[in-house]
Amino acid sequence: MSRISQTMAALRAAKRKVLIPYLVAGDPDKGTTLALMHALVAAGADIIELGIPFSDPSSDGTVIQLGAERALREGTTLHDVMDIVRQFRAHDATTPIVLMGYLNPIEIMGYEAFASAAQAVGADGVLIVDMPAYECAELFDAVRPRGLDTVFLVAPTTTQSRLASICASSTGYLYYVSLKGVTGAAITDKGDIKSKIEHLRTMTDLPVVVGFGIKDAASAVDMASISDGVIVGSALVDAISRLHRGGVATPDDLAATVAVIASIRSAIENIK
């Protein structure tokens, strides 16, 4: 069983919700990202989505765009992202890491090189925002034999005919996009999300985790109540934007930055 599936199974058995923060690797610099990842785990993160910075993040809102720009100004490459995972893994053998990003950096590295590096450093899954499952045959050939999970997005606009193929291609969990729009926008239609997730439940046993638009404890409770848990990106990246590049973040700085994750953790702890 993959590290992601083990984590999910343990949470399910304990009737707890999963909490998945997203941050951009290299924002504001590589050392701080590594320190933040450990701080996130201490604050209650179950899985970490580590963003691969890209120059043209067309599915992201301003907050994450700026995070990617900061990381790229630091010169962060996909090799650096792998390096951050390797260093993290040296001190944390249990928290799964999902590499999330856009296709071009992975395509340029090459699927085989990407998959073998990801396996070697101890990453657990991949989520490529702009690569639909039916374009993934070659990628699957590279990542599946190495035990990496493949996570896909389901959107409010996803048609019934696509749902079946997304469920069939997904392992680990399903990422349900809460809104029509980009990361960091506001959720407007809770009722629709609830019925869509209930429908998804009839099609798959995979955990369904809701992301996009979760910015605080209240919105996290709303979404976690109707799903298996939440992904929090922009709210965290916004806090990271206040950290200074290059300087050593003090334990207090780190705690303040991940406070939003800690507060969401305690808020979703009582949902049954």
């Binding site: 925002v129 639909p132 374009e135 896909f152 959107a155 606009t157 996803t158 696509r162």
Partner: peptide
């Protein structure tokens, strides 16, 4: 049918836009 010219083309957009 999937928009390919040889290995080029295709549909590489976020899930939200696929239906559109």
């Amino acid at each position: 049918a999937h928009g390919h010219f040889g290995r080029y083309g295709g549909v590489f957009v976020g899930e939200t836009l696929i239906a559109a």
